[in-house]
Write a protein that binds this DNA or RNA. Structure first.
Lengths: 214, 214
DNA sequence: AAACAGCTGTGAAAAAAATCTCAGGTTTCC
DNA sequence: GGAAACCTGAGATTTTTTTCACAGCTGTTT
């Protein structure tokens, strides 16, 4: 009955494992061991086994993991075996670049809407995805059953569009701005993904690392 | 002498604190308490104080933190008070969008080079940043003293350009592809930042969450 | 068929991180 | 000036996460 939940660090590592398994399948490999996975992800084999253990029984005791089976188990546990609708908010250079990224469907995500506050832009842009003015966000998110949103608007509009997405019942948000969003204690998950933010984090690691080396 | 190092989770939280402080400065606020920061970041005040504690003595015992001073301390500890050179590898839609992002310098980062393997593209693109063919990556990274690289190439080239960046002595990489890079045990830090990867992680949280609610 | 090398899964141990408690210090307001 | 409300910093405690050790299974090789 698996009552106790999977630790978040384990979840994110298992997402990486999932990715590796995809690569293995493409190279026609059918079996993989915890130490092979560990090496590829620079982690240790014990941790790989413990993480996989959270999924229930998947390994062949004494004989590694069946790549396909492990991948399917992760997919089933994490809900990666079904399509999810997504949208892009803000159609500047970054937003349109993402809107035109061809591989979302390969991974099970379908961009079903783009939003932009500048009406002129909506009329001039030529895309396969239907576009809407930003004031319709909540409405369209609900109607199209959109689970995931990508925020690519200017900093000053980030909080506003977030509120609208949440009002529409969105379940997850990828925030591409450096703004730290205020989230009500609804069950909406946020992933902050700004290059500036990551640059700062990397700078910190670089700086602290060079200090300890001395 | 601060011999013991700051835990990574604390580092990334302090980066968020840093961001908040910026906002506070812009609104003219001079003092802030741990619980105010905590509320804004939905964490708890004890944890905020412990994190700040890693920086040494910065608070006014009994009277909150001086916003400016705290920000400067984080900047100094994390090396955020100096400029760093960065580059973008891969000038497709995403790469060029990033190359044209105006705010890097505001945050202390200067994009000093763009790389692209398609020579035609290099000649047709009009940018303020000097562009180079990809085979010159290692060379240019070394010559221009580039610390940080952004990888925005197609999946199949990701590992190749990574190897070149490392050969040039890069210190940090933001990997925008879903590929999991193989890194030698040099001191290069990687931040994986692919929308697909984050979508998967969010899907996992959404799925596991809805299971436990039942 | 037996021995060996290599594998998983699990419970125990260790390490790391988050949380709590409390001893003081500050400010504000009467 | 004194009380109340609020604050930081640090040690102790609890919780979470990682690492380890080992029992038991599998496939291969001789």
């Amino acid at each position: 009955m698996e009552q106790y939940s999977i630790p978040k660090p384990a979840i994110s590592r298992l997402c990486l494992v999932y990715r590796i398994l995809d690569e293995l399948i493409r190279s026609g490999i059918q079996t993989v061991s915890s130490s092979q996975i560990a090496e590829r992800l620079s982690m240790n084999p014990h941790n790989v086994r413990k993480d996989i253990g959270y999924l229930g029984d998947v390994g062949n005791l004494g004989a590694g993991y069946d790549v396909e089976k492990l991948k399917n188990t992760i997919a089933a546990t994490f809900g990666l075996n079904r399509q999810r609708n997504a949208c892009v908010v803000g159609l500047g250079r970054l937003g349109t670049a993402i809107l035109n990224y061809e591989y979302f469907e390969t991974y099970g995500y379908v961009i079903v809407a783009g939003f932009e506050s500048n009406i002129n832009k909506i009329e001039t842009l030529r895309t396969a995805v239907p576009l809407f003015p930003s004031y319709q966000i909540a409405d369209v998110v609900r109607r199209f059953e959109i689970d995931l949103g990508i925020i690519a608007v200017p900093e000053q509009s980030a909080q506003k569009v977030t509120d609208q997405l949440i009002k529409g019942g969105i379940k997850g948000i990828v925030n591409l701005t450096p703004v730290i969003l205020k989230i009500p204690h609804t069950h909406v998950f946020i992933s902050n993904m700004s290059i500036i933010g990551d640059f700062n984090y990397l700078s910190a690691l670089i700086t602290l690392n060079s200090k300890t080396i001395q």
